[in-house]
Protein backbone atom coordinates (compact mmCIF):
# COMPACT_ATOMS: atom_id res chain seq x y z
CA UNK A 1 0.00 0.00 0.00
CA UNK A 2 1.47 3.28 -1.18
CA UNK A 3 0.22 6.80 -0.56
CA UNK A 4 1.07 9.34 -3.21
CA UNK A 5 2.05 12.48 -1.41
CA UNK A 6 1.45 14.70 -4.43
CA UNK A 7 -2.06 13.40 -4.83
CA UNK A 8 -2.74 13.85 -1.14
CA UNK A 9 -1.46 17.40 -1.28
CA UNK A 10 -3.34 18.24 -4.49
CA UNK A 11 -6.56 16.79 -3.15
CA UNK A 12 -6.22 18.78 0.05
CA UNK A 13 -5.60 21.94 -1.97
CA UNK A 14 -8.46 21.03 -4.31
CA UNK A 15 -10.78 20.67 -1.38
CA UNK A 16 -9.77 24.00 0.10
CA UNK A 17 -10.27 25.65 -3.28
CA UNK A 18 -13.67 24.00 -3.50
CA UNK A 19 -14.50 25.34 -0.05
CA UNK A 20 -13.65 28.82 -1.26
CA UNK A 21 -15.61 28.40 -4.51
CA UNK A 22 -18.74 27.11 -2.83
CA UNK A 23 -18.49 29.74 -0.16
CA UNK A 24 -18.30 32.36 -2.87
CA UNK A 25 -20.92 30.98 -5.23
CA UNK A 26 -23.25 28.93 -3.04
CA UNK A 27 -23.30 29.56 0.69
CA UNK A 28 -22.92 33.31 0.71
CA UNK A 29 -25.71 34.11 -1.78
CA UNK A 30 -28.01 31.43 -0.42
CA UNK A 31 -27.49 32.51 3.18
CA UNK A 32 -27.93 36.14 2.16
CA UNK A 33 -31.26 35.49 0.51
CA UNK A 34 -32.37 33.34 3.44
CA UNK A 35 -31.39 36.10 5.86
CA UNK A 36 -33.18 38.66 3.72
CA UNK A 37 -36.30 36.51 3.64
CA UNK A 38 -36.10 35.96 7.38
CA UNK A 39 -35.74 39.70 7.88
CA UNK A 40 -38.75 40.31 5.66
CA UNK A 41 -40.67 37.62 7.49
CA UNK A 42 -39.65 39.08 10.80
CA UNK A 43 -40.68 42.51 9.60
CA UNK A 44 -44.04 41.19 8.48
CA UNK A 45 -44.36 39.29 11.74
CA UNK A 46 -43.50 42.41 13.70
CA UNK A 47 -46.06 44.40 11.74
CA UNK A 48 -48.60 41.67 12.23
CA UNK A 49 -47.81 41.57 15.92
CA UNK A 50 -48.16 45.35 16.11
CA UNK A 51 -51.45 45.10 14.25
CA UNK A 52 -52.55 42.31 16.56
CA UNK A 53 -51.61 44.33 19.60
CA UNK A 54 -53.42 47.35 18.20
CA UNK A 55 -56.46 45.18 17.52
CA UNK A 56 -56.21 43.73 21.01
CA UNK A 57 -55.94 47.24 22.48
CA UNK A 58 -58.94 48.32 20.43
CA UNK A 59 -60.81 45.23 21.56
CA UNK A 60 -59.95 45.91 25.18
CA UNK A 61 -61.01 49.52 24.76
CA UNK A 62 -64.29 48.43 23.25
CA UNK A 63 -64.70 45.84 25.98
CA UNK A 64 -64.04 48.47 28.62
CA UNK A 65 -66.51 50.79 26.95
CA UNK A 66 -69.05 47.99 26.70
CA UNK A 67 -68.51 47.15 30.35
CA UNK A 68 -68.84 50.79 31.31
CA UNK A 69 -72.03 51.26 29.28
CA UNK A 70 -74.53 50.06 31.96
CA UNK A 71 -72.84 52.14 34.62
CA UNK A 72 -72.78 55.12 32.31
CA UNK A 73 -76.42 54.51 31.44
CA UNK A 74 -77.37 54.29 35.12
CA UNK A 75 -75.37 57.40 35.85
CA UNK A 76 -77.04 59.31 33.02
CA UNK A 77 -80.47 58.09 34.11
CA UNK A 78 -79.76 59.08 37.72
CA UNK A 79 -78.47 62.46 36.58
CA UNK A 80 -81.53 62.97 34.37
CA UNK A 81 -83.80 61.95 37.22
CA UNK A 82 -82.04 64.27 39.63
CA UNK A 83 -82.20 67.07 37.11
CA UNK A 84 -85.89 66.42 36.44
CA UNK A 85 -86.55 66.24 40.16
CA UNK A 86 -84.72 69.51 40.72
CA UNK A 87 -86.56 71.12 37.84
CA UNK A 88 -89.86 69.79 39.14
CA UNK A 89 -89.09 71.14 42.60
CA UNK A 90 -88.05 74.45 41.10
CA UNK A 91 -91.24 74.61 39.05
CA UNK A 92 -93.31 73.72 42.09
CA UNK A 93 -91.54 76.32 44.16
CA UNK A 94 -91.96 78.89 41.43
CA UNK A 95 -95.65 78.01 41.04
CA UNK A 96 -96.10 78.14 44.78
CA UNK A 97 -94.38 81.50 44.92
CA UNK A 98 -96.46 82.78 42.03
CA UNK A 99 -99.61 81.48 43.67
CA UNK A 100 -98.61 83.07 46.97
CA UNK A 101 -97.79 86.25 45.15
CA UNK A 102 -101.09 86.20 43.28
CA UNK A 103 -102.91 85.41 46.51
CA UNK A 104 -101.10 88.21 48.27
CA UNK A 105 -101.86 90.56 45.42
CA UNK A 106 -105.50 89.49 45.49
CA UNK A 107 -105.60 89.95 49.23
CA UNK A 108 -103.99 93.35 48.94
CA UNK A 109 -106.27 94.29 46.12
CA UNK A 110 -109.28 93.07 48.05
CA UNK A 111 -108.08 94.92 51.14
CA UNK A 112 -107.53 98.08 49.08
CA UNK A 113 -110.89 97.72 47.44
CA UNK A 114 -112.46 97.01 50.79
CA UNK A 115 -110.71 99.96 52.33
CA UNK A 116 -111.69 102.15 49.43
CA UNK A 117 -115.25 100.89 49.64
CA UNK A 118 -115.33 101.47 53.37
CA UNK A 119 -113.74 104.85 52.95
CA UNK A 120 -116.23 105.76 50.26
CA UNK A 121 -119.01 104.42 52.43
CA UNK A 122 -117.78 106.38 55.40
CA UNK A 123 -117.39 109.47 53.30
CA UNK A 124 -120.86 108.93 52.05
CA UNK A 125 -122.04 108.35 55.59
CA UNK A 126 -120.20 111.48 56.70
CA UNK A 127 -121.77 113.39 53.85
CA UNK A 128 -125.14 112.05 54.80
CA UNK A 129 -124.46 112.89 58.43
CA UNK A 130 -123.31 116.34 57.50
CA UNK A 131 -126.31 116.87 55.27
CA UNK A 132 -128.59 115.54 57.96
CA UNK A 133 -126.97 117.79 60.56
CA UNK A 134 -127.09 120.73 58.19
CA UNK A 135 -130.74 120.13 57.52
CA UNK A 136 -131.53 119.74 61.19
CA UNK A 137 -129.51 122.83 62.11
CA UNK A 138 -131.14 124.90 59.38
CA UNK A 139 -134.37 124.34 61.14
CA UNK A 140 -132.82 125.48 64.42
CA UNK A 141 -133.04 129.17 65.39
CA UNK A 142 -129.80 130.53 63.83
CA UNK A 143 -130.00 133.93 65.48
CA UNK A 144 -129.74 132.36 68.86
CA UNK A 145 -126.43 130.86 67.93
CA UNK A 146 -125.02 133.82 65.98
CA UNK A 147 -124.21 136.01 69.02
CA UNK A 148 -122.07 133.43 70.86
CA UNK A 149 -120.23 132.49 67.71
CA UNK A 150 -119.64 136.18 66.90
CA UNK A 151 -118.24 136.60 70.43
CA UNK A 152 -115.95 133.62 69.83
CA UNK A 153 -114.72 135.13 66.53
CA UNK A 154 -114.02 138.44 68.13
CA UNK A 155 -112.32 136.71 71.07
CA UNK A 156 -110.20 134.74 68.64
CA UNK A 157 -109.00 137.95 67.02
CA UNK A 158 -108.37 139.44 70.42
CA UNK A 159 -106.36 136.44 71.48
CA UNK A 160 -103.93 136.90 68.62
CA UNK A 161 -100.52 138.37 69.25
CA UNK A 162 -99.74 141.97 68.41
CA UNK A 163 -97.83 141.08 65.32
CA UNK A 164 -100.61 138.81 64.10
CA UNK A 165 -103.19 141.49 64.69
CA UNK A 166 -100.90 143.99 62.96
CA UNK A 167 -100.67 141.64 60.00
CA UNK A 168 -104.42 141.34 59.90
CA UNK A 169 -104.72 145.09 59.68
CA UNK A 170 -102.17 145.14 56.83
CA UNK A 171 -101.51 148.84 57.37
CA UNK A 172 -104.91 149.91 55.99
CA UNK A 173 -106.94 152.47 57.80
CA UNK A 174 -109.80 151.77 58.30
CA UNK A 175 -109.36 148.06 58.19
CA UNK A 176 -111.77 146.44 55.69
CA UNK A 177 -113.46 143.43 57.18
CA UNK A 178 -116.13 141.42 55.46
CA UNK A 179 -118.38 139.81 58.04
CA UNK A 180 -120.37 136.89 56.63
CA UNK A 181 -123.22 135.56 58.73
CA UNK A 182 -125.87 132.96 58.19
CA UNK A 183 -128.39 135.70 58.60
CA UNK A 184 -127.86 139.41 58.60
CA UNK A 185 -126.63 140.67 61.94
CA UNK A 186 -128.59 143.01 63.94
CA UNK A 187 -127.33 146.57 64.26
CA UNK A 188 -126.43 145.92 67.85
CA UNK A 189 -124.40 142.83 66.98
CA UNK A 190 -122.67 144.54 64.09
CA UNK A 191 -121.81 147.56 66.23
CA UNK A 192 -120.51 145.27 68.92
CA UNK A 193 -118.38 143.40 66.40
CA UNK A 194 -117.00 146.62 64.90
CA UNK A 195 -116.09 147.97 68.28
CA UNK A 196 -114.40 144.82 69.53
CA UNK A 197 -112.46 144.40 66.26
CA UNK A 198 -111.37 148.04 66.23
CA UNK A 199 -110.28 147.67 69.82
CA UNK A 200 -108.39 144.49 69.05
CA UNK A 201 -106.69 145.82 65.92
CA UNK A 202 -106.15 149.28 67.29
CA UNK A 203 -107.62 150.86 64.17
CA UNK A 204 -111.04 151.76 62.98
CA UNK A 205 -112.76 149.00 61.11
CA UNK A 206 -114.87 149.22 57.94
CA UNK A 207 -117.29 146.40 58.39
CA UNK A 208 -119.02 144.91 55.33
CA UNK A 209 -121.98 142.72 56.27
CA UNK A 210 -122.76 139.76 54.03
CA UNK A 211 -125.49 137.14 54.48
CA UNK A 212 -124.34 133.60 53.76
CA UNK A 213 -126.94 130.95 54.57
CA UNK A 214 -124.45 128.20 53.81
CA UNK A 215 -122.82 128.95 57.12
CA UNK A 216 -125.97 127.47 58.79
CA UNK A 217 -125.13 129.40 61.91
CA UNK A 218 -122.23 131.63 62.96
CA UNK A 219 -119.93 134.12 61.27
CA UNK A 220 -116.79 134.46 59.17
CA UNK A 221 -114.41 137.40 59.42
CA UNK A 222 -112.68 137.96 56.11
CA UNK A 223 -109.57 140.11 56.43
CA UNK A 224 -107.32 141.05 53.56
CA UNK A 225 -105.27 137.90 53.84
CA UNK A 226 -106.90 135.82 56.54
CA UNK A 227 -110.24 134.42 57.51
CA UNK A 228 -111.56 133.75 61.02
CA UNK A 229 -114.35 131.19 60.87
CA UNK A 230 -116.78 130.49 63.66
CA UNK A 231 -119.73 128.76 62.01
CA UNK A 232 -121.52 125.50 62.09
CA UNK A 233 -120.53 124.99 58.48
CA UNK A 234 -116.97 125.16 59.56
CA UNK A 235 -117.63 122.98 62.59
CA UNK A 236 -119.42 120.34 60.51
CA UNK A 237 -116.69 120.40 57.91
CA UNK A 238 -114.03 119.90 60.57
CA UNK A 239 -116.07 117.17 62.20
CA UNK A 240 -116.49 115.47 58.85
CA UNK A 241 -112.83 115.84 58.10
CA UNK A 242 -111.84 114.49 61.48
CA UNK A 243 -114.26 111.61 61.19
CA UNK A 244 -113.06 110.78 57.70
CA UNK A 245 -109.43 110.97 58.77
CA UNK A 246 -110.12 108.80 61.75
CA UNK A 247 -111.98 106.21 59.65
CA UNK A 248 -109.23 106.15 57.03
CA UNK A 249 -106.63 105.49 59.67
CA UNK A 250 -108.73 102.70 61.13
CA UNK A 251 -109.32 101.22 57.68
CA UNK A 252 -105.61 101.27 56.99
CA UNK A 253 -104.98 99.60 60.33
CA UNK A 254 -107.60 96.95 59.53
CA UNK A 255 -106.06 96.36 56.11
CA UNK A 256 -102.60 95.95 57.61
CA UNK A 257 -104.00 93.56 60.23
Amino acid sequence: MHIDGWTLLLQAVNFLILVWLLRRFLYRPILAVIAERQAATERVRTEAEAARQAAEAARQTLEAQRTALPAERDRLIAAARAEAEAERAALLEKARQEADHALEEARNRLADERAQALDALRRHAADLGTQLATRLLRDAPANALTRPLLDEACAAVESLSDSQRHALADGIDPVPVRLSAASLLSAEDSALARDRLAAALGRPVALELVEDPSLIAGVELHFAHSVVRRSWKQTLAEAKEEMTRHDSARSAADALA
Partner: peptide, 23 residues
Protein backbone atom coordinates in the same frame (compact mmCIF):
# COMPACT_ATOMS: atom_id res chain seq x y z
CA UNK B 1 7.75 16.54 -11.61
CA UNK B 2 4.22 16.36 -10.27
CA UNK B 3 2.25 13.28 -11.24
CA UNK B 4 -1.41 14.22 -11.75
CA UNK B 5 -3.40 11.17 -10.76
CA UNK B 6 -6.92 10.09 -11.66
CA UNK B 7 -8.65 11.23 -8.42
CA UNK B 8 -7.15 14.66 -8.86
CA UNK B 9 -8.45 14.96 -12.40
CA UNK B 10 -11.88 13.67 -11.40
CA UNK B 11 -11.92 16.07 -8.47
CA UNK B 12 -11.15 18.94 -10.80
CA UNK B 13 -14.07 17.94 -12.92
CA UNK B 14 -16.34 17.67 -9.94
CA UNK B 15 -15.10 21.02 -8.66
CA UNK B 16 -15.83 22.61 -12.01
CA UNK B 17 -19.31 21.11 -12.11
CA UNK B 18 -20.13 22.10 -8.54
CA UNK B 19 -18.71 25.62 -8.80
CA UNK B 20 -20.28 26.36 -12.17
CA UNK B 21 -23.54 24.81 -11.10
CA UNK B 22 -23.61 26.91 -7.94
CA UNK B 23 -22.70 30.06 -9.82
Amino acid sequence: PVPVTLPVVVTWGLMAVMALGSA
